[in-house]
Simulated scan of single mutants.
Amino acid sequence: MKKTILTVDDSASIRQMVSFTLKSVGYEVLEAADGDAGLAQAKAKPCDLILTDQNMPGMDGLTLIKTLRALPEYRSKPILMLTTESSDNMKSLGRAAGATGWIVKPFQPQTLIDVARRLLG
């Protein structure tokens, strides 16, 4: 069965790049344009990995992570921040919220594939 990855980003071009990259190696990819839509997607269909931006209208990435971690089905699922935010303080806030890891944009497609494979087996 295909692993399902949800990408949450307000940039359509980033969502398309993430989706194209991960679909090219066999993952099913769902897309959401903000945290609220991402939460709805994650509740509607179980996801094996979630990638979220930080700065989005409505619910931001840290709030999305905290909200997902409160749900039993997402307590231990990997959630990565995929964002331009790279300060140590922001990474610390991400870890405190429950982020599994951090990828800084712009990202290398192969790096994204390698990280997904490592986290999903």
Rank of each mutant, 00 (worst) to 15 (best):
A116L: 05
K23T: 12
E85S: 14
D60S: 02
F20G: 09
R69V: 05
I14P: 02
S19D: 07
Q108G: 04
T63C: 05
L68Y: 03
Q16G: 11
L30G: 09
A99N: 12
A33H: 03
V29C: 05
A37L: 07
R75S: 12
R75L: 14
S86N: 14
I103T: 13
R117S: 11
P78W: 09
T4S: 14
S87I: 04
V104I: 12
D10M: 03
M59T: 11
A32H: 05
P106A: 09
R15I: 02
P78R: 11
V115E: 15
M1E: 11
L93I: 04
L82K: 05
F107C: 12
L71K: 07
S11C: 11
L22Q: 03
K45Y: 03
G121A: 15
K45T: 12
A32N: 04
G121S: 13
T52L: 06
L30F: 05
A97T: 03
V25A: 07
S24N: 12
W102G: 11
P106K: 02
C47W: 00
D34A: 05
W102S: 13
E28Y: 00
E28I: 01
G58C: 09
M81F: 15
L112E: 10
L64C: 13
R75C: 15
L120N: 07
L112T: 13
G61T: 07
R95Y: 05
P78M: 14
S92H: 09
V8K: 01
C47K: 01
P106E: 00
L80A: 10
L68D: 10
A12T: 02
P46C: 08
A32W: 00
L30I: 07
D114F: 00
L93R: 13
K43F: 04
V25K: 05
N89G: 06
A42M: 01
C47D: 02
C47I: 02
V8R: 00
R15D: 02
D60G: 07
A96K: 04
S87K: 04
N89M: 11
D10I: 03
L6I: 08
F20Y: 05
G38C: 01
T21L: 10
K43S: 08
G98W: 06
D48A: 14
L30Q: 07
M81N: 01
L82R: 10
N55K: 14
V25W: 06
A40P: 00
L68K: 01
V8Q: 01
L62S: 10
I14H: 01
T100H: 06
L62E: 04
K45H: 13
G121V: 00
R95N: 10
G58R: 08
